[in-house]
Design a binder for these strands. Structure first.
Lengths: 285, 285
DNA sequence: TAAAAATACTCCATAGGTATTTTAT
DNA sequence: ATAAAATACCTATGGAGTATTTTTA
């Protein structure tokens, strides 16, 4: 269209004139109507040619931009990192890190998403997250993602305030062997039930399940109401609501691992730095 | 990504597994980073693969929609017709046609653009119009577009109200041979000057130019001020402002052709119908 | 008749298939 | 040991080039 001549256009495109003729004929045949009218003066565009240019130019532009973004990403120059975290817990590691990271990589945008472990895993699987700061539940991800332990923390027992054991100074896991356990639903906190099960087995008993809940709040409510018990990582120690007693377990083998999951594939420098900062902060705390 | 296995994906895509492996390797090499991690369990997508899908899906969608629109157009099923017209004149032909057209093709959207002849030609060249309802200026388009005469109308002389000739009952072109002519600029009304020149030559003289203007209003103003003259198509007969006298020329060979220009290429049925309606209306008037 | 596009014909690159090997669990 | 991906090797199609013919102003 710009040259008005297949010969000139072919020269500009570095192909021979017959080649361009054939390419044009192929498109015209596929479309079912001519794109140019030919004459001894050259070629003149039809209305269809104008429409083709009008509608395809933005598509090609979008493709080029997308491809450029992809190659940049592939070469480790990514413009954003999306991190999922568990509001109640990870803020402890994450908050101080954000500022440090911004200093090292001011041009990389950091997105933080406060999500339940279940949501984090789902987001990782959809590709909506690059990193997930997840708890013990990370083990559930199996080999779907790269894992790295960030910190190992203690375990607390959740008891109704009026529970006999709540009077004691310390508590060990085996003392809970006859209690009824309540766990969050698998969809909300995948692997929590399994983790409790494994802890109890190490303590020599098998837990007795009396119910599933949808949230931490709900768990507390039912424990208070039904005199049941549960186990939690100890970052929740300060959050006991009225009617609930939280007690650190004395067992040395009872722990909870803070895990960082990341998308498979090459690790971009910016992402590597972020992970390093998080790990250092976690180790220090 | 959906199958989690090159074998299954290859089966779904109706190609062999080695073919898919090679295609994947080609893209990975071009990108510079792997899209999948391979194992004896199948393949698992990297973050890059998620990004690729995320960014390319809308591009492919846009391409498919654009191509569908183009093939529809190529097969004569166009969803719109864009018509440029000269407000002062073409409304006469166009207004009654719009309603009739809507009855025949209720699904085809009609866009009407009030433009000067110069703008119309430019829009046609850019592909922004499908049809242009243009005056004598259409002849200037040469062979760039398909032409069709719609109506042949008379010519009027433009005189200052106090001009000696303005007193007469009729006027012929040859009586203007000693007058000074004013024409709109070539950019605004291409070919107007040439048309007047040819008319005068038929009447046996060569016009004397005394100026160029930017618009019809401007032309009237300068004619009134400088006692100059000009020629116009007779659809402007009723529009004489104060201080200006418009008189129909008696010469039978002085006429002005109303021309319809259309984009090159196949004529869609809807467009053909529209042109037919315009031609019929013009003939009747 | 001259400029431009279309065709004829040839060649080679590449995409695809089959058979086989390598790898990882 | 088995399932899955990678490789080796071969074939055929299609895209590109050169030389030539056809077309039209």
């Amino acid at each position: 269209m710009e040259e008005g001549s297949l010969n000139r256009a072919a020269a500009r495109l570095r192909v021979s004139q017959p080649t361009l003729t054939r390419q044009l004929q192929a498109i015209e045949q596929e479309l079912g109507a001519p794109l140019f009218e030919r004459g001894s003066h050259g070629v003149l565009p039809t209305g269809l040619a104008h429409h083709l240019r009008e509608s395809m130019t933005p598509v090609i532009g979008a493709y080029d931009r997308a491809w450029a973004e992809l190659t940049a990403h592939a070469h480790g120059r990514q413009s954003q990192i999306r991190v999922g975290y568990l509001g109640l817990s990870a803020a402890r590691f994450l908050t101080p890190v954000v500022g440090q990271f911004r200093e090292i990589h001011p041009d990389v945008r950091l997105w933080l998403f406060d999500q339940t472990p279940g949501e984090q895993l789902q987001a990782l699987r959809k590709g909506d997250l690059d990193l997930a700061l997840i708890g013990q539940e990370g083990a559930m991800a199996g080999d779907d993602f790269y894992q790295q332990r960030v910190a190992r923390i203690g375990v607390i027992a959740v008891l109704a305030a009026g529970h006999p054991l709540a009077e004691k100074d310390t508590i060990s896991l085996s003392e809970l062997s006859t209690e009824g356990f309540i766990v969050p639903a698998e969809s909300a906190v995948p692997g929590r039930k399994l983790w409790i099960q494994q802890l109890c087995r190490k303590a020599g008993f098998s837990p007795q399940w009396v119910g599933e809940t949808d949230s931490v709040t709900d768990t507390f409510a039912r424990i208070a109401a039904e005199q049941a018990v549960s186990l939690l990582p100890d970052y929740l120690l300060q959050t006991a609501p009225p009617g609930i007693t939280l007690m650190r377990l004395s067992d040395r083998c009872a722990f909870w691992d803070f895990t960082l999951l990341r998308q498979r594939g090459r690790l971009a420098p910016a992402c590597r730095d972020l992970i390093r900062l998080i790990a250092e902060t976690a180790k220090a705390s």
